[in-house]
Each structure stands twice: as C-alpha cells, then as structure tokens.
Amino acid sequence: MLGREPTLTRADVAGAAGVPLEVAEDLWHHLGFPHADDTELAFTEADVEALKKTQELIRLGVLSEDRQAALVRTWGRSYARLAEWQTSLLAEVARERGGDEVEDLVALTAQVLPLVESLQDYVWRRHLVSAARRMLTVADSTAVPLAVGFLDIVGYTARSKRLSDKELVDWVEEFEDTCSDVVVEHGGRVIKYLGDGVFFTFEDVEAAARTALELVILGEDKENPFPHVRAGISYGDVVLRLGDVFGPTVNIAARLTTVARPSSVIVDENAAAALEDVDDLRVEKMRRTSVKGYSRLQAFRLRPGKAD
C-alpha cells in the first residue's frame, strides 16, 4: 500500500529531509498517523519527499504557523475517513471472491490503488475549480450571507438498535446519497454528514427551503426507504474556513432542528422574510421558544403552498 518497502526510522526520515525530528513528529501527529517507535522501520523515501514538500509549502507561506495545524488536521481527518472506507470496501470484495482473503486483498490492492489514486486526483482538481469559483467572490474567513440547513433522521437511535451493523451502514449510506443528490441538484453544498443528519448550505434561501421540503416529503412516502426527517434553516452571515462554516447562523439552524416536529421544516426570521413572497411556499409564525444559547428564539413553520 505504501508503494515500497519501509526501510527508514522516523529519525532517518527527518534527517534525510533536513527537518528537525520534533517538527516532523508534530506534522505526523496532526495528520493522525500512528506513533512509531525510535527503531521501527515504518517509513519510506516517500515520507522524506513529503517532508521536503511540506517545508517548501512553509517557505512559500502556504503553511504559515497560524494555519499549519488546522490545515494539516483537515487533511488527516479527511483522508483517514476515506482510507477506512476504501479498505473496508476492498476487504468486502476480497471476501466475496471466496478464495484466500489475504492473497485476494493484496492482489486487489495492487490493481486498484493506481486507479483510485488517479481518480482521487481528478476529483480533487474538480472540487478545486468549484472552490476557486466560490472564493473569487469572497475571501476565506470573511463573513458572507448563506442559508444554512440541518436535517436530522427522526427515531435514529431506536431504529439503529434493530439493525445489524451492515444494515445500519447501508441505511445511513443510502440516506447520505439521497441527501447529497437532492442538495446538489438544487445548487447547494453538503458541508458534512453527522451520522444521523446532514449539514448543508445554499446561497439562495428559496433553494434551501425547497430542498428541505423535498427531503421531508421523501421521508413521508411509505414506498420510499428514505427515513422520516426534520429540518431547520436559518439565513445570515457565516464565516467560511477550511471548507467548514461557522457563526450564529449555523447555531440557530441547529437549534431550530431540535425543536422541529417529525416531517417538518422550521426556519428563522431572516429566512421567513426572504420566503414571504414566494408564491408556492408559506411561513407560519410559531411561539417563541427557548433553546440552548437563545432564550426567546422566533421560529416559523415552512409549508408548501400558499394559505387560502
């Protein structure tokens, strides 16, 4: 999997790269790599090259001290999750072949990794283009107005207890796939999946509202395996950083989701005002509610169709 036989200790790698050992260890720690003993031959020449390239990014000012740890942690978390999923997939395919599982896994790895590596580079570059387009209009860490949505599965804990591990994984993956399809189709972006929920953003409030309503309706369809859900949407300034979104607008959307009834969409005042003149949507004012961090939060119930 590493592409070559490990022949170097961590001290060998740091020395060959001309980097202090403590700097290299700090980098590996942020990436989430397992700890290697002083004498363990756990590294290859690729690790040397990686350290050299990291030093070059620092020299260029890309990995400055104030952003180095956060950026490297983001890399580590993202690739760790991806690697876990890919390894599980390869192991499952190897088991299905019915032969020697270890031999089949090794053979699959040799065949598949070059293809996956190339595809990952392709996908990464396509996402770079999308991210660059967004960043052309706003700098990272600058507040921008966005519609923020959270969608939760209703009764997740109870249902998960009745499912086997594989059934639970399949169920959650199908939920995430459907959410991703609907969000992207309406022009939004999935920020992250939360196990029993999804966190998404839209530049357009109406598109966010229609996305949430569509997913709620899917959950009400008894012929559709999509689970019952509830959603909260807020609109306002957020801060963008390293692919994530922060700020009170995010907090409000999350709080609204906790007070939403099953199969309902709740929006805040800003979102309600933006949706007031949409012909086929209506917002209904609710009683003010107290949630964590907000003692009298004004919420509105979103429904399809205008009142008579």
Rank of each mutant, 00 (worst) to 15 (best):
E206S: 11
T54M: 08
G149C: 04
L27I: 12
V238D: 02
G3C: 07
G76N: 01
V129S: 07
T87H: 14
Y235R: 02
R10E: 12
T137F: 11
V267S: 06
A131D: 15
L242E: 10
K306C: 07
D308W: 11
S263R: 04
V198P: 05
L8A: 03
A80R: 14
L105H: 02
A209H: 09
P145D: 01
A36I: 01
V216Y: 00
R210W: 11
A110Q: 13
H127V: 11
Q68F: 10
P248R: 04
D66R: 13
V265A: 01
G149I: 05
D170L: 13
K222W: 00
M1I: 14
E22C: 12
L146V: 01
A158T: 13
D244L: 04
G3Y: 08
L128N: 13
D170Q: 15
K161A: 13
A131K: 13
Y156D: 01
D279I: 02
W171G: 11
L302S: 02
H35A: 14
L115Q: 09
R230F: 03
D280E: 06
W171Y: 12
E284Q: 02
Y122P: 06
L57K: 10
E276F: 03
K166V: 13
L90W: 06
L105G: 07
A17V: 06
V169A: 12
L113T: 15
A80S: 15
D237Y: 08
Y294E: 02
L71G: 10
E56C: 09
E103C: 07
E65D: 15
I217Y: 10
G98Y: 02
G99W: 01
A254C: 04
S88R: 15
P304Y: 07
L27E: 01
T7D: 07
F150I: 10
H186R: 15
T54D: 03
Y235F: 14
A158D: 12
E25A: 09
R230N: 06
G305Y: 00
K166N: 14
A253Q: 10
I233C: 04
T289M: 04
R134Q: 15
E84F: 10
D181C: 08
L82W: 13
A132Y: 11
A50F: 09
K166F: 13
L297P: 02
A11V: 10
Q120D: 12
S164I: 02
E49C: 03
G155M: 06
R125S: 12
H29D: 11
R95P: 00
V250P: 01
A209M: 08
G3M: 15
D277H: 15
A36E: 05
Q86H: 14
V250G: 00
S264K: 08
N224K: 04
W171S: 12
R95T: 08
V229W: 04
E173K: 11
L57A: 07
H30D: 11
G187W: 01
R230S: 02
L213N: 03
E49A: 07
K53T: 09
V72E: 02
Y193D: 08
V265Y: 06
R230E: 05
R287S: 06
D26A: 14
P6T: 05
L256R: 12
Q111T: 15
G188R: 02
L194S: 00
A273M: 01
R162E: 13
F202N: 01
G232S: 09
E214T: 14
A253E: 06
L213S: 03
